[in-house]
Write a protein that binds this DNA or RNA. Structure first.
Lengths: 191, 191
DNA sequence: TTCGGGGTAGACAGATTGGTCTACTTGGCT
DNA sequence: AGCCAAGTAGACCAATCTGTCTACCCCGAA
C-alpha cells in the first residue's frame, strides 16, 4: 500500500512492455489505482517517475543477478552462472523479472539515445554495477593480467546474448555465450 | 526530388536521433518540406512510413557493411573486417550511417517489443541478412563443423559491441570483439 | 484543350498528451 | 479537539497527436 511504490511498479510493467513514450501518465494512474495528485506529489514529472523506475529495476535486477553469482563457487563457476542466469531470464524462468522483453536499460537508451540525457546515464550506471559484480569474480581467476579486458568481454557477451534473444527470439543465446566463455578458457590458459 | 524518398530520409534521421514515438508526423513534414497530403498519398500511416524507413536503412546499412567484407580477403580477414567496419561506425568514420546512436533496428525493437509486431519482424529480418553475409565467410574457413555456431557467435559479438558502444559510449567495443575473435582463432584451431 | 495525378498549404477533427488545480476525505499526532 | 499531510476524483488547460479534407496549382498525355 505504498503510494509511492505503486505507480513505479505499474509504470515499469507498462514501460517495459510498450516503451516509455508510448505509455501515458493517465494509463499508469488508471492501472495503478492512485490519483493524479498523489503521483505528482511524489514525482515532479514523468521523467522523474522514469528515473525512479530505473532505480527500482536496477535494484531488483542486481539482487536477482547477484543471487546466481553467490550461489556458485567463486571464480570461473560464478562466471558461468552468469549465463545460466541469463538463460533462465530469456526462457521466463525468472519470475521477479517479468516476461522477457529485452533489457529495460537497453530499451530505455534506445528511446533516450543522447548520452547526456539523465535516463541514459542512469542506464549506463546500471551496466557499470553489473560490471563490478563480474569484475569481482574475474579478479579471483589465476591470471597474471588482463582482468579488465576479460571483465569487459564478458559483459559484452552478455549484451550480445540479450539483444539476440530479444530481437530474434533466440532462446539459446545465453548458452551460446556460455560456450564461448568455455572455449576461451580452454584456449588461452587464463583461468 | 523524389517526394516519396524525402520523408523517408527525414524520418530516419529524426527517428534515429530521438526515437520513433517521440517524433511527430508534423515535424517530419516540416523538416522534409513536403505537404501532409503528399505523405499520406505515399504512406497510409506513420507505421507504414516506419516500415519504409526500416527498408531504406536496411539497404543502406547492408551496402555499407558488405563493402568492408568484399574489400578484404575472403575467410578470416573478411570476418576481422566486420569489426573494423563497426569500429569505423562507432567512431563516426562512416558518413553514410549518420552520427552513431546505436543500431536503429535494436532501437526500434525496444519501442516495438512484441515480436509479433511488423516493425519488430522487419528488424529481425535485417539481422538475418547480416547473418547471411557472415555465414558466407565462415563457410570458407577450413573447419569440418561448427559453421552455424561460429556464425551466430560472431553476430552475437557484433550486437554486444554495438550495445556497449552506445550505452557506455565505449568506442573501443568493436576492437574488443575483434580481439576475442582472434583469441578464438588461436585457441580452437577452427580457422 | 481538357483532364487527372501529384503536388502545395493549411484548416480542421477528435483524441490524447503532461501537468495544474479545486474540492473534498481520511487518519494519525500533538 | 484541532491540525496538517497525504490521499481521492476528476475538471480543466494548452499543446500535440494522427489523420482527413478543402481549395488550389502545375504539368504532361490523350
Amino acid at each position: 500500500m505504498d503510494k509511492r511504490q505503486q505507480p513505479i511498479n505499474t509504470a515499469f510493467r507498462l514501460f517495459y512492455q510498450n516503451g516509455i513514450h508510448a505509455v501515458g501518465i493517465n494509463q499508469i494512474l488508471k492501472e495503478s489505482g492512485i490519483a493524479k495528485k498523489t503521483l505528482y506529489h511524489h514525482f515532479t514529472s514523468k521523467e522523474q517517475l522514469l528515473l525512479a523506475v530505473l532505480e527500482y529495476r536496477d535494484q531488483v535486477f542486481l539482487e536477482w543477478f547477484s543471487g546466481y553469482i553467490q550461489k556458485a563457487e567463486p571464480g570461473l563457476p560464478a562466471l558461468e552462472a552468469i549465463f545460466d542466469a541469463l538463460d533462465d531470464w530469456f526462457n521466463n524462468r525468472a519470475e521477479e523479472l517479468m516476461d522477457f522483453q529485452g533489457c529495460f536499460f537497453i530499451n530505455t537508451c534506445a528511446e533516450f539515445g543522447d548520452i547526456s540525457h539523465q535516463a541514459h546515464q542512469r542506464c549506463a550506471q546500471h551496466k557499470k554495477r553489473i560490471e563490478e559484480l563480474v569484475r569481482e569474480q574475474v579478479d579471483r581467476l589465476p591470471m597474471t593480467s588482463g582482468h579488465q579486458e576479460l571483465t569487459e568481454t564478458i559483459c559484452q557477451l552478455k549484451e550480445g546474448a540479450i539483444v539476440q534473444a530479444h530481437i530474434q527470439g533466440d532462446l539459446g543465446a545465453a548458452k551460446r555465450s556460455r560456450r564461448l566463455l568455455k572455449a576461451l578458457q580452454v584456449s588461452l590458459d587464463i583461468m
